[in-house]
Design a protein around this nucleic acid. Structure first.
Lengths: 382, 382
DNA sequence: CCAGTAAATGCAATCGATTGCGCTATTATA
DNA sequence: TATAATAGCGCAATCGATTGCATTTACTGG
């Protein structure tokens, strides 16, 4: 207590010229008098009800009054208290977003899409990360419910194999939209890209480039996107008369190390693969590193395609072909779906599933045949 | 209207078995009866005041009552309404974060640090992105104020050269903490890394490796971090008896293209540079690409070091040396500062500035001399 | 000139939790 | 055995905005 007093004393002495020395930092003199609609009411000479209605452009308030109120509000720098409003009409104007991680171009772009769409409609977003951890995802749902969000948008974590935590959201009647990493075990609106078609195109492109022994990197099969990508890969092979070999499908965590290990595995098994279509950009970079370490020439000996168009795919040597998932568009559509749910008529609707098209981006890692059709400099396949 | 009716009609017909066919989707029958402390009060046979106090572990409530209340709360699945509480005691338990973009490992890691620290203390975070756009930054501040956040943590946008929008935050007495991209024009608590020292180390390392004509990539000088990095670079040169040449400092937007252009510029001017220390990883990747395109050998002919330890620096060929900024730690310290501000005694304190150490990460792009001290294979400097 | 209607605004309750003050018992002190 | 203190809990106001209903004023038609 002595010591404390000592310090406080010093502070007190030094801070007698509060404004001069310490500026505004915690300066007790600067009392934040909150201004409410009542202050406006006083100013204009009406009641708070009228002010509230004027501010909300209620039809029963005369234009003259509205004008006065608006002006007074501006004059005294009024800021509506969203919390009070939220309490009254039960809407927080907050949207909760759960993504595995925002530290991915794909997800942060989706978030941006949602954010812009929502902000334009006077809604704000709360972003949470599940870090692909099931427990954290459950907690996060709870936290968002706690925060009284008006809706929740989710991309599932990789380890999420049970969906009970979403039932409470649904039961509370809170709009729920899934995007990208979804499940069919829940009857919920969703926005996805056409993973099947994208994978089909990617695989087809590899075949066009003369690759015939195409491996596939995938992740846990509970998540639909990986299943779909596998399906597209498989179908493209079959449609081109190429045997589908389950041994060529390698499962991993789809991170850098997973990709490295998977590539190592392929090399060790000597299946004679000449291309990899990976469901993740991270894994394909890992593979690229491992292959280069083993003096495998890309794309001459092995062709590579990733998935997601992460920025670094442009920076590798050679640049990696990949699939652009139109992340911003996914975000916008997800948000749009939410607003449809809260604005549309409340009668039950069948589940909506928006499927967007993806874009194959062809770079060097899969371009064995010169894109110009001259045969001059073309390296012959194999 | 006809068409609409038609659809609605169909829906209606199909949805008579609401639960059976459509499940819970917007099903009007599932009314969410909100449960409040009054319900608990009724259950236990006390008043809402007592329930509230029991829930908040107030000392004046008997242990017996507390137990009953807690049990009843659990039993009827009570969830406190944060909004009501927020309205009452003026605390939203929300923290607003503004970063230029979350789509960067550095920033998203900081956010993670803040988030975890805050969540552990029952606070939630709202993340907003300024996209390095001044106007957006101003709007965002406003939006956070609107949402009645209890505190704001900011990393400045690159184009932010005026700070008036923060004055309103300060005037309202809302704790404000800057991190990483800060300014000294505002008297605000801040958490930064020792950019000067990091830059000094990086430059020194290049010199150790025998590079003598070291260029520097930088950005707008209004942002302190870039100034500090420049200072560190300069001092390291001087301390090693190397002439500091302003011509070797190249300014750009610090993105990929900026880095490319800057490298192009250096090549064109033929200053005879043999290394680049860039204040951004993105710019150094651009430079790397441009140099490789011109058959410049890295690190034999030119050494490179970036800044931030973005994940892709590991993926390039060769892997890039860079500076790890301990992002998570920055986040934690930023959050900690906020809690100090709201918990500490309200008397004015002098501004706090936490300076954390950064870590030089040495990879191939700057390693001309084998790290083992044998002279056998060592390429001689110059 | 009056009933009748529409337009414009006020009154007061409400959303759910918190909290200062006050009222009883119960226990401690003299 | 008083008196004082204290523990345990209820009353009612409060936070700021919203809103159903009531009220007042103005205006129209007959």
């Amino acid at each position: 207590m002595h010591l404390l007093d000592y310090f406080l004393n010093i502070h007190f002495k030094r801070s007698q010229g509060c404004f001069a020395i310490f500026g505004f930092l915690d300066c007790p003199m600067k009392k934040k008098e909150k201004i409410t609609i009542h202050d406006i009411a006083m100013e204009v000479g009406v009641t708070a009800s009228t002010v509230s209605r004027a501010l909300n452009n209620h039809p029963r308030i005369s234009p003259a009054t509205k004008k006065m109120v608006l002006e007074a509000a501006k004059a005294i720098n009024y800021k509506p208290n969203r919390i009070a409003a939220a309490l009254r009409h039960g809407k927080s104007k907050l949207i909760g977003i759960i993504v595995p991680t925002i530290n991915r171009n794909f997800f942060s772009s989706i978030v941006r899409g949602i954010e812009e769409y929502a902000n334009a409609r006077d809604y704000k977003v709360m972003i949470s990360q599940s870090y692909d951890d099931y427990k954290k995802e459950v907690e996060t749902i709870d936290a968002l419910l706690d925060a009284r969000v008006d809706g929740i948008m989710v991309s599932l974590g990789k380890n999420t194999h049970s969906f009970a935590h979403f039932e409470s959201v649904i039961q509370k009647g809170i709009p729920l939209v899934f995007f990208d990493r979804t499940t069919d075990e829940l009857d919920v609106n969703q926005v996805i890209i056409d993973d099947y078609s994208a994978a089909y195109q990617a695989t087809n492109h590899l075949i066009d480039q003369g690759y015939r022994h195409i491996a596939h990197f995938t992740s846990h099969m509970k998540i639909k996107i990986y299943l779909e990508r596998l399906r597209g890969y498989r179908q493209a092979l079959l449609d081109n008369g190429i045997h589908f070999d389950a041994k060529m499908v390698v499962e991993s965590n789809m991170q850098l190390d997973g990709g490295r290990n998977s590539a190592r595995f392929l090399l060790d098994q000597s299946f004679g693969f000449d291309a990899i279509f990976s469901a993740s950009d991270y894994a394909i970079v890992g593979a690229l590193q491992e292959l280069k370490k083993n003096k495998v020439k890309i794309p001459q000996e092995v062709g590579l395609i990733g998935f997601s168009n992460e920025p670094f795919t442009e920076f590798t040597e050679p640049a990696l072909s990949t699939v652009d998932q139109k992340a911003i568009s996914i975000g916008e559509n997800t948000a749009a779906l939410f607003f449809e749910m809260i604005n549309g008529d409340p009668r039950p609707k069948p589940r909506i599933k928006k499927v967007l098209d993806a874009n194959l981006i062809i770079r060097t890692s899969s371009s064995r045949i010169p894109n110009i059709q001259l045969n001059t400099n073309s390296t012959n396949p194999e």
